[in-house]
Every structure is written in structure tokens, then in C-alpha cells.
Computed example of a mutant assay.
Amino acid sequence: MTEGHKPLRDLLTELLAPALSSTGERPAITQLQRLTGGAAAQTWAFVAELESESHALILRLGQDQQQFGAALSKRQEAQLITAARHHGVLAPEVVVSLPEDNPLGEGFVMRRLAGEALPQRILRDDRYARARENLTGQCADNLAAIHSIPQTRLDNIPAMDADTQLDFYRSAYLGYPLRSAAFEYAFRWLRQHRPDTRDEALVHGDFRNGNLLVDEQGISAVLDWELAHIGDPMEDLGWLCVNSWRFGRRDKPVGGFGQRDDLYRAYERASGRVVKADHVHYWEVFGTLKWGVICLYQAHVHLSGSEPSLERAAIGRRVSECEVDVLSLLRGQQP
């Protein structure tokens, strides 16, 4: 650990002493390192060592000044993960949230679980061959569990129907200098084809390959809850099928590992809801446009100089992929 990590180490020591030890023993913070990935938040891995045991942990910090506007605060995210875990979702255990007015901003510490989150490895390594067979059904089961969480257990989670989200992403899109004919067409199509749904539930908002921790048997944890909201549960199914989250496996629209019909049947069994393909298609179109606008945002943060970042720049270059995908969907072709 470098001297530059000392303020973070000291804060974690103070924070975790009462959370990990009934006697208030101060843990030694070792193996502290920032992990790759995560353009919207910092993620740190470390070990908290007590005299009798060690705890492998993860620290999630929100980059509040550059957080995309629709995201939950880290405090809300921690509360939501805890509620989801209590309702049978495979979610990490939150150990403690950072107190207000600490120098690092909002964040929380959770248990570190075994598994792989990099989609390319999940989709290609022989180690995860059996997991790939199980993932579609496990996605359906976890989505059904998420969508069944009583709204009375959810505190200050925003409600976001199709119109509300279209307003938000349209406003964001107009704030960036690039104009896209494909995106303009998609915004108009989505306004004209809004599904008639009265079914509202907790929506994860970013349930996809890349936000799933996977071991040799399948999902070990559902990650990254910062875009959660109350809305149409079919939104999560459509987002899972967006082409960008297949990572080259275009023949397997569900995350690069499964087929839509299998996902729909498994979700119907687990949730008791009826899935209509055209309803999910609407949200796949929406998800493709949404990701395109987020790519514009990431490029803008980098190019404006407010936070130069190779990762943000690389994401920003994917706008053109979204344009091709959304036009393919609107022409009745599968991207």
C-alpha cells in the first residue's frame, strides 16, 4: 500500500471497527487496490484483518460530481441491495455505509464474493461452460425476485415510466453537441409506441452481462443497482437483450449466452407474469437508445476536460454501434 492511500485506509479502519468486531477491535487494512471497470463509480478491493480473522471486502464510492443524473445515491443503493438480499435476490451483503460529511463522499462497504464479472471471460472461458447453460434461467429467477420486492420496503426510489425516462434522456441528449438522425427517429418511434402497462415494480435498471458476478455454477451476485427505479418490469428483460451486452455473441440475444424465448418462459414460471414479445421489444429499442445517450454523456465528460478518462473516451466511441443497432431493431431486424 502506498502512502497516498493512507487517508482511505485510516477512514476504513475507523468505520469497520464497530462493524466487524463486537469489541471494537481496529482492523488492519491491507491489499487495498482500485479495480478496473466502473465509469460511474470507484470500486476498491481490500482485506480487513482482525486478530482472529480476515474479511475480504469491496468499497464502492460514488463520483458524485460526474454521476449521470438518473442514478441513485450510494446511500440509497446500499439500502436497496440490503432489501433485495432479504427478498431472495443474489446480492452482496452490505457491511456498512459511509457516514455523512466524510471526506470521501457517499459510499458503502460490502462483502467480496467469488466470481467473474468480465463478460468476455464469462462467454468464452471453458471454466464457465456450465454457468452459461444456467445463466438464462438464473437471470429470470433473479429478475422475478427483484420485481416481487414490495414497494413498501423501498424508500425514496424514484418512479420512472416510459414518458418520464424519454423526457430525461431526450433532455440529456439535447445537452450534447452531437445530433444523430438515428436517435431522433428512435425518440419519435418510442413516443408513438409506448406500451399500455399498469404493472409497476422495482426495476433494477442495469441488469445485464457485466453487472453479474458469475462462478462455475452461474450467478453468485447481482451488482450495480444505481439505476434502479419503480417502473415497467419488462424494461429489465429488454435491457438484458440489448446487443451491446452480448459482447460479440449476436446469435445469443440474452447477454450473449441465451435465447429470448427461453428467458421469457423461465421468467413467466418464476414471476407469474405474462411476457409479450412486442412489449419487451419496445424496451430493447429504448435500452439501445438509452445506452447511446449514456455513451454521449461519457464522451462529453472526457472531451469537456471535467474528467479526462480513457475508459470514458472508449465508451463514447460506441455511439455509432448504438445507431446501427437501433435502426436494425426499428426495421424489424435483430441486431
Rank of each mutant, 00 (worst) to 15 (best):
E3Y: 14
G4Q: 13
G4S: 15
R9S: 14
D10E: 15
L12M: 11
L16Q: 02
S21A: 09
T30C: 12
Q33F: 11
R34G: 14
A39H: 10
W44T: 12
S54H: 08
H55R: 09
G62M: 01
G62Y: 01
Q63P: 00
Q63V: 03
Q66S: 08
G69W: 04
Q76K: 09
E77F: 05
A78S: 02
L80R: 12
L90M: 12
V94H: 07
V95C: 03
V96K: 06
S97H: 03
E100Q: 10
F108A: 08
F108G: 11
R112S: 13
R112V: 09
A114I: 10
E116M: 10
A117I: 12
P119M: 13
P119L: 12
D125A: 15
T136E: 01
A140T: 01
D141P: 00
P150L: 12
Q151G: 09
R153P: 01
R153G: 12
N156W: 05
I157C: 12
M160S: 11
M160H: 09
A162H: 04
T164F: 02
Y169G: 08
R170W: 12
Y173F: 15
G175R: 14
R179K: 15
E184M: 10
F187D: 07
Q192D: 07
T197W: 00
R198K: 03
R198A: 10
D199Y: 00
D199C: 02
H204D: 10
R208C: 06
V214Y: 02
V214W: 00
E216D: 05
Q217E: 04
A221Q: 11
D224Y: 05
D224H: 06
E226A: 04
A228E: 08
H229T: 00
D232H: 05
G238T: 01
L240F: 09
W245M: 03
G248P: 05
R250Y: 12
P253G: 04
F257C: 07
F257H: 05
Q259I: 06
R260A: 14
D262H: 05
R265N: 02
Y267W: 03
Y282Q: 00
E284D: 03
V285M: 05
K290I: 11
C295H: 07
Y297L: 10
Y297W: 09
H300D: 15
S304K: 00
S306T: 04
S309I: 03
R317S: 13
E323T: 10
R331Q: 10
R331A: 14
Q333C: 15
Q333D: 15
